[in-house]
Simulated scan of single mutants.
Amino acid sequence: MTSRNWVRLFMSTLLVGGVTTAIVGFIIRWDEFQPYFIHFQIIDILSTLVWLIVMGFLFSVISQMGFFSYLTIHRFGLGIFKSVSLWNSVQVVLVVFGLFDLVYLRYENFAKPGDSVVPYFGPAFLLLAVSLVVAWYKVKQTNRGAFIPALFFMIVATLVEWVPVLRENEKNWFYLMMISLLACNAYQLIILHKLNAQSVQERQKRAEQTNSKAKNTSKNRKMTKKPSM
């Protein structure tokens, strides 16, 4: 990827994180922010909006760190296991363990005596459903081989990035960060192949321009060369 497209990816993902967090933040915490709108407290509304956008930028940076880390891990995995099918099998196993831990560890750490385990399946099913849709769309845009890596990234990478809030189990932050991370991760995953294709085209165009300039320079030198006699 060219530096220009990398900057474009970074800035656009920041925008996705900021906008998503601002919208979801107002929806999730509407009971808290509703008086601001009822009493037309513009300063409070704007300050809350700026605060949510900044938090969205932070979630976006975490998402991007996880994304580029996964790209590195993916290459290492292919190199270590020497087989795409074997590496995909390892990723599937890690996906299953990740979803299991999301349910089991949260239930063990935060459930009160007598609480049912059923509500703790909700976030896992939501994460799996969103990840399956994103992975399917990625396959539709690229090829079948992208399904497992996309599913792994959307589930396992999101869980790793989500850890600070998972430890606290505060409901509002729990879903706010989850949705923001999913939005940023999905966006990066879907846009990556398009930016890579643009980068290849830009490199080819630059190479053609360089070759053209070199030919013109050589031609000009021949035309201006003094005769030997």
Rank of each mutant, 00 (worst) to 15 (best):
E108C: 04
V54K: 15
K226T: 08
V96A: 07
E108N: 10
L132D: 01
A183G: 02
E161K: 02
A111Y: 09
A129W: 05
F10T: 03
R8K: 13
H74R: 11
V24Q: 10
R203Q: 08
Q188M: 14
F67Y: 15
R203K: 09
E108A: 12
Y36R: 09
Y137S: 07
K112N: 07
K140M: 07
E170F: 09
A111E: 02
K194I: 13
L15T: 11
K226N: 05
T21F: 10
F33D: 02
Y120H: 05
T210H: 10
F110V: 04
G56T: 06
D101N: 10
T72W: 12
F57W: 10
P164R: 07
D44K: 10
F76E: 08
I42R: 02
Y175C: 01
F76I: 14
V96G: 01
A129H: 05
F67G: 06
F40Q: 11
I62E: 05
N169K: 03
A124M: 14
L181N: 02
N220L: 15
T217V: 09
Y175G: 00
L49K: 04
D31R: 14
V117E: 08
L151Q: 02
K171H: 08
H193F: 11
L105V: 11
V93I: 15
V93F: 12
Q201L: 13
F152I: 01
G122N: 09
T2K: 14
L176P: 00
I28E: 04
F67M: 07
L105H: 05
K225C: 06
V95I: 11
G79L: 12
A135S: 12
L46D: 11
S3T: 11
L46R: 13
A129G: 14
F110T: 06
E168I: 11
V130Q: 13
L159G: 04
F147L: 01
I191A: 13
V200L: 14
Y175E: 00
E32F: 13
N185V: 07
S180I: 01
V134S: 01
Q34K: 15
T142P: 01
N172T: 05
G18V: 08
A186E: 06
P35W: 06
S180W: 02
I43Q: 08
R206K: 11
S89N: 07
L151D: 00
R4V: 09
F26H: 12
R221V: 08
N169S: 03
P149E: 01
K138H: 10
G122I: 14
R203H: 05
H74F: 10
L166K: 03
I45T: 07
Q141L: 13
W162Y: 12
I45Q: 02
S116W: 12
L9T: 05
P149H: 03
N220Y: 13
P123E: 14
M178P: 00
A111R: 09
G17Q: 06
K213L: 14
G18S: 15
F100C: 13
F121G: 04
Y175P: 00
D44M: 12
T210W: 14
I155A: 04
P35Q: 06
P164T: 06
S89F: 10
V165H: 03
H193N: 12
F26W: 13
M1H: 08
K171W: 09
G18E: 09
D101E: 07
L71I: 09
H193S: 11
R75I: 03
M223I: 15
N172P: 01
L49Q: 07
L14M: 05
A111V: 09
Q204M: 13
R29G: 04
T13D: 00
